[in-house]
Design a binder for these strands. Sequence first.
DNA 1: GCGTCTAGGTGATGTAGATCACATTCTGAT
DNA 2: ATCAGAATGTGATCTACATCACCTAGACGC
Lengths: 192, 192
Amino acid sequence: MESKEILKQHVAKVATLSNDEFDYFFSHFQPESFKKGQVIISEGAEVKKEYFVLSGCLKSFFVNDDIKMYILQFSMPTWWASDYAALYSQTRATIAIDCISDAEVLSLSNENREKICHELHQAEHFFRWRTNKGYVASQKRLLSFMNNDAKTRYEELLAQYPALYNMVPKHLIASYLGVSRETLSRLYSSSK
Amino acid sequence: MESKEILKQHVAKVATLSNDEFDYFFSHFQPESFKKGQVIISEGAEVKKEYFVLSGCLKSFFVNDDIKMYILQFSMPTWWASDYAALYSQTRATIAIDCISDAEVLSLSNENREKICHELHQAEHFFRWRTNKGYVASQKRLLSFMNNDAKTRYEELLAQYPALYNMVPKHLIASYLGVSRETLSRLYSSSK
DNA sequence: GCGTCTAGGTGATGTAGATCACATTCTGAT
DNA sequence: ATCAGAATGTGATCTACATCACCTAGACGC
């Protein structure tokens, strides 16, 4: 399916746009391709865009002073990714994004998002919905972190994204779960 | 300051509404008062509204099968609270909300929110902004959970909300930090 | 006044998971 | 084909924090 059609179906789930309106909406996006390992947003950089994933897989992550990495999100097709804190408040990136595999995305600049949100009520509606979904997911993950041990979180993740297990190196899964790669290794040798 | 004025100033920070428009916006809210300890949303209940805090302090929390409580958010004046997962998808509450102190709030039903978002583009804009802010805060908290130990999180919390220390019982602060009350007690006997 | 209840402090002990150390693939570049 | 560097597994130790047990000080009713 063509990239325009993918985005169209994604948006149509919550917003009502005529074909002309969608064409206009779509004209604010820009297709971009990245190679496996390529960095899209690096820590400390200016953040100007957000990204809608068409194919491949991105990761959003934070690296602390001890060079330990924590993954906030794996972004699969039809997911969005950016450092939203930096993007909205025009500060430097604290969260980095790069490509786990080759990836096709549609990028949308901060100005263009605000422009189409201003011009099209339904665009604003769509982005409210999308952000709300992210908010709810983030809260759920926070709760899981507080409530569950590593093994439970691991099983939760596999139940939700069975594809990740084969697609993503194990040490990245560990970084997402917030455990060391050694602990993760012991977890699934014990559970299967 | 009158409740209407509090909300007006809060909304005006991001949305441009004429006086008439704001009056209309405001007419969808309902003032409510609660006593200390009173439950606003209980687990398993239907969630029909969200709440804008005018005075006092609410807590949003989750209780697991072992009766352990985890606090997601303390809601101070001009903050919003609800179980947004349940509110948006019309499912039963998994997150409960009650009052740490006597509280005055403005409640907004799910239907009324969607109604004014539909009728007033600027209302939609406001709620997009507010949800984005919550999303960013939630991500930040998630990162802090993954990256920092209990003591660091405790100091972070005090730095951000010095008022909480005297306003809120210590065991609730422990539930927010995700540590046992015993550990919290040892933390601040060691740090001050 | 007295009893009961909740908040809070503190010691002793148990445990999930981190860290360190080293071995074993696997992958990619030359 | 060869070599270097990633990715992974596994044992030994260490540590932050939970849990349990008990104690004290206020708060609130009767």
